[in-house]
């Protein structure tokens, strides 16, 4: 008897599942033929498997499952909104996407805002810019709903700015 009882008992499931080498199978068979305790252990294993096989559950599905399936396969498909598709693709929750977009907007805003420019950078407008602003402000100030005082002050400011540049 080459194999120990402990080793044989550990391999009974593998033996019954047909995954051992032919040599190992033969060793187990030889051991079981000579060892009544291990033979009893194998019988017990077989009995448990027979018990499982004869007591497997077989439930009747609840009524009405087909109705749910039918409704889903016959109803027209709802188009998924573009944002929904992006969200599905990214597989991130909506609030996380919102927070990410807001953070990105803040960073981009700060980067491109005039505040970001260093004091030495050239933000002064050219004479052409000033003239364009004046013309535009004058034309829109003619609208009955326009804030005329605001536009007049803008025209004055751009004129002063132009004067500074010319002097």
């Amino acid at each position: 008897m080459l194999m120990k009882c402990e080793n044989v008992r550990q391999l009974l499931a593998e033996y019954r599942s047909d995954i051992l080498s032919p040599r190992k199978n033969r060793e187990i068979e030889e051991h079981i033929a000579a060892c009544s305790d291990c033979a009893r252990e194998l019988n017990e294993f077989d009995a448990v498997m027979a018990l499982v096989e004869s007591n497997v559950p077989d439930y009747t599905p609840p009524q009405g499952l087909w109705n749910g399936v039918y409704n889903k396969i016959t109803s027209p498909e709802q188009p998924v909104p573009v944002f929904g598709k992006i969200q599905q693709w990214l597989r991130i929750p909506i609030h996380a996407a919102g927070v990410g977009a807001a953070a990105l907007a803040i960073v981009v805003g700060l980067f491109f805002s005039p505040v970001h420019q260093s004091p030495g950078s050239d933000l002064r407008m050219t004479t052409a810019d000033n003239r364009y602003i004046q013309a535009h402000a004058y034309s829109v100030s003619q609208s009955p709903l326009a804030d005329r005082a605001g536009y007049v002050s803008l025209i004055t400011f751009s004129q002063e700015s132009e004067d500074e540049q010319t002097h």
């Binding site: 499931a13 599942s17 995954i19 019988n43 294993f45 448990v48 498997m49 499982v52």
Partner: peptide, 25 residues
Amino acid sequence: VGTIKSRLARARAELKRKLAHLVET
């Protein structure tokens, strides 16, 4: 197939441990 056989063997061993008390040999 080998993976399935191996899983089945281990699952059977576990079932045997859990259910051995139900059978008399």
